[in-house]
């Protein structure tokens, strides 16, 4: 069911517009993601020192370019397990609506791949 909604959403909204108004994505990232991924998105969040699997650095261009927007959306919504990664990456699909998850995907693109993205 979730997957169907996600796919429908993507056919409607793709391609995501990057960089336009990133404020929402940035705020959401600060609120939900920095606790593990770090205030600069480098993977060194306050929780990371005691975690058995390290949170991904979101500022590494190559690693992040290997993922499509659809994959990023899916891992945020359904968690690490949905793409055979660690369950320490939680599923946020109940906390965040699809518009918010899309804003986060756009923010991740800015962090990894645009100049001054992580400021």
């Amino acid at each position: 069911m979730r997957a169907v909604i996600a796919i429908t959403l993507f056919t409607l909204l793709s391609p995501l517009s990057h960089g336009a108004d990133d404020n929402q994505g940035k705020r959401l990232y600060t609120m939900y993601c920095t606790q593990c991924h770090g205030v600069h998105g480098n993977g060194l969040g306050v929780n990371s020192s005691r975690m058995s699997v390290q949170p991904r650095s979101h500022i590494e261009r190559e690693e992040m370019m290997a993922r499509s927007d659809e994959e990023l959306f899916k891992v945020i919504q359904q968690g690490g397990k949905s793409i055979d990664k660690s369950n320490l990456m939680p599923a946020w699909g109940d906390n965040l609506n699809e518009e918010e998850i899309s804003a986060l995907v756009a923010h991740l693109r800015q962090l990894c791949c645009e100049e001054n993205g992580n400021e």
Binding site: Q35, N47, N87, L88
Partner: peptide
């Protein structure tokens, strides 16, 4: 291990996260 709660929570003084 199974639920990953200790990423953020301490279940003893020397195990678990901080947020």
């Amino acid at each position: 291990k199974f639920k990953g709660c200790d990423a953020c929570h301490q279940d003893s003084e020397d195990n678990g996260g901080f947020s």
